[in-house]
């Protein structure tokens, strides 16, 4: 456990020091939130009569987006460690690769949740009101699961990549589709029927709906289903990440 903590501590120290990365990775979610939120708030009529407006609907999606991108990126960062030699230092130590992988995953998840929390605070500042304190805790639970799931996913990908060249490919063809299909920007009930199965195999959908339940009190998918689906997916990603990282060459 102390080894996992050591790797986690390193991630956090690096995170706190890279101010430009913190601000940089907040840029896109904030832009989405403000542009889409304010821009579409008055023209989009939410289905049903829950009384929520589009801005309220959007906030959980953007929080999930922020957590998703930060966690995938932090997982993929082990490629840097590989390229700049630091990974050797950890791999030659008398510790198991599983411990290294778990530490890296939890470190990435933590920074991702912090990034998500920034969006949450921002949305409070622009006047969004949420239901309850318990709701916050539920939202954080789902943010944490998204963080762990996709940090492990990032490590799994990084274990297979030689350098950062494939990074853009992964971002455009894997991470953006995961975000786009998740119902972060639109209610999944109003999608054409042929598209629904795609959103339902996207693990982020359950994360977005879970956060939405926590913050707004309503969700298209039952929160326990969300918890089970996302939790299961997280477990699978950790196992996949651990297996691939164990075989990764340096």
């Amino acid at each position: 456990m102390d080894i996992v903590y050591t790797l986690w501590l390193r991630s956090l120290k690096r995170y706190v020091r890279s101010k430009s990365r913190i601000v940089g990775s907040l840029g896109m979610p904030v832009f989405f939130l403000l542009a889409l939120g304010f821009g579409l708030n008055s023209v989009v009529q939410m289905p049903g009569d829950t009384g929520e407006n589009y801005m309220q609907f959007l906030v959980p999606g953007i929080i999930a987006m922020s957590v998703l991108f930060t966690s995938v990126f932090s997982g993929i960062q082990i490629i840097w460690d590989k390229q700049f030699g630091f990974l050797k230092e950890t791999l030659v130590a008398p510790v198991s690769r599983l411990e290294i992988m778990l530490g890296q995953t939890l470190g990435g998840a933590t920074t991702a949740v912090i990034q998500g929390a920034f969006i949450l605070i921002l949305s409070l500042l622009i006047g969004i009101r949420f239901t309850s304190f318990t709701g916050f805790l539920i939202a954080f639970l789902f943010m944490t699961l998204i963080g762990i799931c996709f940090a492990a996913f990032g490590i799994a990908i990084a274990s297979k990549m030689e350098d950062m060249h494939g990074f853009q490919l992964i971002m455009n063809f894997v991470v953006f589709p995961i975000f786009g299909l998740s119902g972060a920007l639109f209610p999944i009930e109003s999608l054409p029927e042929w598209l629904v199965p795609l959103t339902l195999i996207d693990p982020l959908t359950y994360g977005v709906e879970g956060i939405r339940y926590g913050l707004l009190g309503t969700s298209a998918i039952h929160p326990l289903v969300c918890l089970a689906a996302l939790g299961g997916c997280t477990a699978v990603m950790i196992v996949a990440g651990a297996l691939l990282f164990r075989k990764a060459s340096i």
Binding site: R10, K13, R14, R17, S18, F84, G85, F86, L87, K88, E89
Partner: peptide
């Protein structure tokens, strides 16, 4: 190691 293996940050 031959190549540097420190964490520069």
């Amino acid at each position: 190691f031959q190549d540097q293996s420190l964490d520069e940050e």
